[in-house]
């Protein structure tokens, strides 16, 4: 092999590094479409809203709907349930934030900021611990100590405002974006 002078060697190394780095940048850029294709498609993103007719729901009853592939709890609360939710001091809660998509992220978990219309509590039925669906508490079949929900997977307990009170879940049940079209019709999403 012909001996190369150090000068030629430097130039060769520079070309290697340049071509190699440009090629590497290209490879990384080319990888992005193959990663991004696994994100929700524009079709999935567009299927966001569900309209719910509330007339059939009795006080004290909860109906589960499917919204964006997950359970959605719509609960018509009794005056007693509303009262017990209002009586709680927000600062004593494990999660003091409202987690309400209709309000700023900093809103506090006062019951009025969890349920805009006090009678109607609308939350995602997804335990904030590891995603199970919590069981609803009724006077006949109580679930947990707080009259709201109990998640049987790992024992997280929620109150009648859907706020976490006990157990491993870190956050209150999420309130999805919704608007009341009429007094008895709500559009979620």
């Amino acid at each position: 092999m012909a001996a190369t002078t150090s000068d030629a060697g430097t130039r060769r190394d520079f070309l290697y590094v340049a071509a190699g780095s440009v090629g590497a940048v290209g490879a990384v850029a080319a990888a992005w479409p193959f990663i991004d294709q696994m994100n929700p498609s524009t079709g999935a993103l567009a299927l966001g809203s569900t309209e719910i007719d509330l007339t059939a729901i009795q006080p004290g009853q909860q109906i589960v709907y499917k919204w964006r592939g997950q359970p959605l709890f719509v609960r018509r609360r009794t005056p007693a349930e509303i009262e017990s939710a209002k009586a709680v001091d927000v600062n004593s809660l494990p999660d003091p934030l409202a987690r309400n998509a209709n309000l700023p992220d900093t809103a506090l978990a006062n019951d009025a900021d969890r349920a805009t219309k006090p009678e109607w509590l609308i939350v995602k039925g997804v335990c904030t611990h590891l995603g199970c669906t919590p069981a609803v508490s009724t006077p006949q079949i109580p679930e947990g100590e707080y009259g709201g929900w109990l998640c049987h997977c790992h024992g997280s307990e929620y109150d009648t405002s859907g706020r976490i009170r006990k157990g491993p879940a870190p956050e209150n049940l999420a309130v999805p974006p919704y608007t009341f079209m009429t007094d008895t019709r709500v559009k979620v999403g």
């Binding site: 060769r12 070309l15 290697y16 340049a18 071509a19 440009v22 090629g23 290209g26």
Partner: peptide
């Protein structure tokens, strides 16, 4: 650009 660099190398 990449082809140019590779050609030089």
């Amino acid at each position: 650009v990449l082809a140019g660099l590779l050609f030089a190398a």
